[in-house]
C-alpha cells in the first residue's frame, strides 16, 4: 500500500503557526533602533550595529549580544560568521592551485590549503608537486568535507584545516541546511546518536547525517568513500527520521543540539517517517520536545 497523497486547504488561521516559544523573551531590535544611548567610548561597535550622534543603533533585526564592551546585534537569518576552532561541514566548490575553495554558507567562500590537510599515508610530509597534480583525486568539486576553522583572513574569509582523523571527506549520507544561528555551540559536534545514526552538527548550519561510524578503525586522512556499501533499511529509516525531526525543530526555530534531537526523535516515534513531513506533525513534535526540554531545565536548576 503506497502512502496517501495529502492535499490540504490553507486557511488564514493555519497560516499563523503556534510557535513553540520559551518563557524567556528577548528584546528584539529593529534596524535604526537605539541599542545603547550615548555609547561614546564605553562600548565598542560590533556586527549589526552602527554609530550615529553618539548612539549605537542596530542595523539588522535581531537580539543584542554583549561581550565585555563589544556590542553586536545578531539576526536570526544570517550567513555564517566563522570563529577559530569551530567545526564546519562544507562543499568543495573549486579546485585551485594548492588550495580548494569550499562553500561553507559564509559570506565568502572558505579556503582549504593543500598544506592544511592530512594526505593519505598519514604521517606529516612535505607537499610535493605530485600532490598538487593529484589534488582533484583527493577532493573534487561537489565533495563534502568536515573541517575546523584554522584562521580568519583579513577579508573575512575562513581558512580551514582537516588535520585530525575526525575531519576529512564525508561518505554516504545526507546533508541538510538550517540557519547557522540555530546550531547550539558546544564542545562536541560529532555525535553518535543512540539509534544508530551519526551526526555532524556544523556550526555553519550544515548538518550531516550518516550511518554510524565505528571510531575504532583509523581512517587514514579520510579520502576514501565507500560507494559499494548498501545501507540497511533500518539505518536508512533512522536517518530519515532524524532528518525530518531536525527540519521540524528548525521550522519551529528551536535550537539544535544532541539532547533536543534525541528528544524529538523519541517524540516522533508515533508518526511514520513520511508523516513527519506534514506541518501538524512537525509542530506537534517540536512542542513535545520543547516541553521535555523545559522539564529538563527545571531539573538541572534545582
Amino acid at each position: 500500500m503506497s502512502q496517501k497523497i495529502h492535499i490540504r486547504t490553507a486557511s488564514a488561521s493555519s497560516r499563523v503557526r503556534p510557535l513553540a516559544t520559551t518563557e524567556k523573551s528577548y528584546k528584539i531590535f529593529t534596524p535604526g533602533e537605539v541599542v545603547i544611548k550615548e555609547a561614546n567610548t564605553n562600548f565598542v561597535r560590533g556586527h549589526g550595529t552602527y554609530e550615529e550622534n553618539g548612539d549605537l543603533k542596530a542595523s539588522v533585526a535581531g537580539v543584542k549580544e554583549q561581550v565585555n564592551k563589544l556590542i553586536s546585534v545578531r539576526p536570526l537569518k544570517s550567513r555564517y560568521n566563522g570563529q577559530v576552532g569551530e567545526v564546519l561541514v562544507g562543499r568543495i566548490s573549486e579546485v585551485q592551485q594548492k588550495r580548494w575553495k569550499v562553500d561553507t554558507n559564509s559570506r565568502l567562500d572558505s579556503v582549504l590549503m593543500l598544506s592544511s590537510v592530512n594526505l593519505p599515508g598519514g604521517e606529516l610530509r612535505r607537499r610535493s608537486v605530485e600532490d598538487q597534480h593529484m589534488m582533484r583525486q583527493y577532493l573534487q568539486e561537489g565533495d563534502l568535507i568536515s573541517a575546523e576553522v584554522q584562521s580568519i583572513f583579513s577579508d573575512g574569509s575562513l581558512s580551514l584545516h582537516t588535520r585530525s582523523l575526525r575531519y576529512g571527506k564525508l561518505g554516504q549520507g545526507l546533508l541538510i541546511k538550517v540557519f547557522p544561528s540555530l546550531v547550539k555551540k558546544s564542545k562536541i559536534h560529532f555525535h553518535n546518536l543512540p539509534f544508530g545514526v551519526s551526526l555532524i552538527l556544523g556550526n555553519n548550519g550544515y548538518i550531516w547525517i550518516s550511518p554510524p561510524t565505528d571510531n575504532t578503525d583509523d581512517n587514514v586522512g579520510g579520502f576514501v568513500q565507500n560507494l559499494e556499501e548498501v545501507i540497511s533499511k533500518d539505518i536508512r529509516e533512522a536517518m530519515g527520521r532524524v532528518r525530518n525531526c531536525i527540519l521540524a525543530l528548525a521550522e519551529n526555530k528551536m535550537m539544535l543540539f544532541d539532547t533536543s534531537i534525541v528528544f524529538a526523535y523519541e517524540e516522533s516515534l508515533k508518526y511514520s517517517v513520511a508523516e513527519l513531513l506534514l506541518p501538524e506533525a512537525m509542530v506537534d513534535v517540536a512542542l513535545l520536545t520543547q516541553h521535555r526540554l523545559s522539564m529538563l531545565d527545571d531539573y538541572e536548576f534545582e
Partner: peptide
C-alpha cells in the same frame, strides 16, 4: 525508502487555497 521517508510513489504534502 527515500531520504525523507517517502516511498517511490509518495508526494510531499500539498497546500492549496482558492
Amino acid at each position: 525508502f527515500r531520504s525523507d521517508g517517502r516511498d517511490r510513489e509518495g508526494y510531499r504534502p500539498i497546500e492549496i487555497e482558492t
